[in-house]
């Protein structure tokens, strides 16, 4: 599997490493994907890197690669963001993978081996949901709202109604809320706020977890929040050019 830029892998690692220390990557002809729970079992994260994300991709037999994020991060730090990355896994030797970074300008090439782990894989079935509300907005804006309100209080409430979408946090000595309304005057789709819902709803989530989830803003200019009563929120970042996505399901806080 050959990626045109290592930056994509670096960003994916940054987006999951606070939640997941080790995970199985499933490789098949469609691409590379992973699903993992954090140790508290409060967030489920899914990453899909489709074949389209790669400059070249070949997977003759489906394989599972058990990756320890810490050494993987150390290896990735050795790659320049615009260097090409080739990941090689051999079906005859499933003990490790090889990573080759190529800097075409400098005619430099570096090679690394990463030992694979035998991880007890657990996979959760995510039902196809009819969401009660969907909000799409610039990922940078969502990140700023979450980062700011997480300083105010540890509970982040998201309410969707005819007024728009309201994010609220309450702390011991302060409270803050931010309201977004659907944008009408913005031309660029990536800068638009779009809100759809069937019934008004209000749900509360742990702000520290939501903060970790906003790290994926580096992977996509837009984010989609899908909510339904008594269901984890789905926070989805679609990468450009059908390259894949990262999705987080965060369990709500309830009475």
């Amino acid at each position: 599997a050959r990626l045109p830029r290592s930056a994509v892998l670096k960003k994916i690692l940054d987006s999951v490493k606070d939640l997941v220390k080790e995970t199985n990557w499933d490789c098949n002809e469609e691409g590379m994907s992973m699903q993992a729970l954090d140790t508290g079992r409060i967030v489920l994260v899914e990453v899909m890197l489709r074949e389209a994300a790669f400059e070249s991709y070949a997977c003759e037999v489906p394989m599972t690669l058990g990756i320890d994020m810490e050494p993987f991060g150390k290896v990735l730090r050795c790659a320049g963001g615009d260097e090409k990355v080739t990941i090689k896994a051999s079906r005859n030797d499933q003990d490790h993978i090889e990573l080759v970074f190529e800097n075409e300008e400098k005619e430099r090439m570096s090679a690394f081996e990463l030992k694979l782990m035998d991880i007890d894989g657990e996979h959760m079935a995510v039902p196809d949901a009819e969401w009660g509300a969907e909000i799409s907005m610039p990922s940078s804006e969502f990140k700023k709202i979450v980062m700011d309100l997480a300083e105010i209080g540890s509970d982040l409430t998201i309410a969707v109604s005819k007024l728009g979408v309201t994010f609220t946090a309450q702390g011991n000595n302060c409270k803050g809320s931010m309201v977004l309304q659907p944008s009408t005057a913005v031309d660029k789709k990536s800068e638009q706020v779009a809100i759809s819902f069937t019934e008004p709803l209000e749900m509360t989530f742990a702000a520290p977890y939501m903060k970790m989830i906003t790290k994926a803003a580096a992977l996509s200019s837009t984010v989609t929040l899908s909510l339904d009563e008594a269901c984890p929120i789905c926070v989805r970042y679609e990468m450009e050019d059908n390259a894949g996505h990262i999705k987080y399901y965060l369990a709500p806080k309830e009475d």
Binding site: L37, G40, R41, I42, V43, L44, E122, H123, M124, A125, V126, P127, D155, T204, A206, A230, C231, P232, Y249, A251, P252, K253, E254, D255
Partner: peptide, 14 residues
């Protein structure tokens, strides 16, 4: 006060 629910409260293992 609110209780933090778990993913297991909503999704089942495959």
């Amino acid at each position: 006060t609110l209780r933090q629910s778990r993913i297991d409260d909503f999704f089942r293992p495959t």
